[in-house]
Amino acid sequence: MMVELLKRLGLNKYNVDPKPHIEVDENICIKCKEKFCIRVCPAGTYEALPDGRIVVHYERCLECGAALVACPYGSIKFRFPENGISYRYG
């Protein structure tokens, strides 16, 4: 049985920052056809809207760092959150 992403993320401890630590440049995303970010991100943080914009579910972020190399067009502004995830196994 495949386990849904949100269920898997729900196993983790998050202390979500009140402000997003990831931003995308709408002007870049709307023109982007490939949406590499969606394929690379292991947390499903990036979701495409029908009009091509990207919604950022920053609260799902696993802080893997892939966002820093996931977009070749430089749309993603990523910094680490102040709180965020705490792994118990790691």
Binding site: L6, K7, L9, G10, L11, N12, Y14, V16, E59, R60
Partner: peptide
């Protein structure tokens, strides 16, 4: 509400 873990 979709039910993100942090909401649940």
């Amino acid at each position: 509400i979709s039910g993100q873990p942090q909401h649940l």
